[in-house]
């Protein structure tokens, strides 16, 4: 490296607008508050799961898996940045992706509760639970993004078209681990089953349309999550059958929905860790 040639690798250092040069005209007849809220919902799902997956860095069962989970987290973070930038833009208020990620409080996050559940690596969690959640999340998000490619919002459509390729890898990775754990030892199988039981109460919420989603689906901008159920069920059942697992039966967890900013007790701890540097040292760069 030559003298004076400064190298920056970390996001947050001199990063220009994530959507620079992307066609970002807002569809004329679409409610921009709804569009901002919807971009936030999809962006928060990706951001919060990215944070959860990053917690496994250096803690995964093997080095390759460490790299894999970090890669998946990075893909989701990339999607989150684009979606949060779109939300800020549609909102028309002076804020950006960093403000949205680091300066909102718990009740302002619009992610579904599935992504915030503590699946480890700390106490109470487990690698198998992390895989169970990734399987459900990626299967759902892949079905969603495939349909969102047809969105009338050019940014959502473009983000979705890229995301489909990435999330297909995430889903297949989780599906292959599900087979490996369920078909491994009696102990690994028990843990896979326990992992699915841990996340299953949050699955129902994924298919319940928020009023914003319903309105924007009618306007040709969003996807009605209820539409995704048949495809998601079919993929999950294929994995369960191949792994000789029963579909979990745990009832939906009360409370929520996360889309209204009503979260579980895990969310505050997650945000404290994710936001504390930014809040302690506003505007700091490295």
């Amino acid at each position: 490296m030559e003298a004076g040639e400064e190298r920056h690798w970390a996001f947050g250092t001199g990063f220009t607008a994530a959507l620079s040069g992307v066609d970002r005209a807002l569809p004329a007849d679409v409610d921009t508050d709804d569009l901002a809220a919807y971009a936030l919902m999809l962006g928060d799902d990706a951001l919060i799961l990215s944070q959860r997956l990053a917690e496994w860095t250096s803690r995964a069962p093997e080095l390759e898996e460490d790299v894999a989970l970090a890669n998946i987290a990075l893909d989701l973070l990339g999607q989150a940045r684009l979606l949060l930038t779109r939300a800020a833009e549609a909102d028309g208020v002076a804020c950006d992706e960093d403000t949205l990620a680091f300066e909102r409080d718990e009740h302002e996050f619009r992610n579904t509760r599935l992504v915030e559940v503590d699946c480890g690596p700390g106490p109470g969690g487990d690698f198998a639970a992390t895989i169970a959640r990734l399987l459900v999340f990626a299967t759902h998000r892949l079905a969603l993004l495939q349909r969102l490619v047809g969105s009338r919002d050019p940014v959502l459509s473009a983000v979705a078209a890229k995301g489909v390729k990435e999330v297909a890898y995430h889903r297949d990775h989780a599906a292959q681990w599900t087979l490996r754990l369920a078909g491994g030892t009696e102990y690994s199988r028990e843990r896979m089953i326990a992992g699915l039981d841990l996340v299953w109460p949050y699955v129902e919420e994924l298919f319940t349309a928020h009023p914003v989603e319903a309105r924007l689906a009618d306007a040709g901008v969003a996807v009605d999550p209820a539409e995704l159920r048949a495809e998601v069920d079919e993929v999950l059942d294929t994995v369960f059958t191949a792994a000789d697992l029963q579909r979990p039966t745990a009832a939906a967890r009360a409370g929520g929905p996360g889309r209204d900013g009503i979260h579980t007790e895990a969310m505050g701890y997650l945000l404290a860790e994710m936001q504390h540097i930014h809040r302690s040292m506003p505007g700091a760069l490295w």
Binding site: R7, H8, W9, A10, F11, G14, F15, T16, G21, L74, D75, L76, L77, G78, Q79, R81, L82, V159, K162, G163, E166
Partner: peptide, 18 residues
Amino acid sequence: VTITPTYSGCPALDEMRA
């Protein structure tokens, strides 16, 4: 100049611009 990212989260994109 117009470039496109390989992956949504590709950290090299900014470096390419520079």
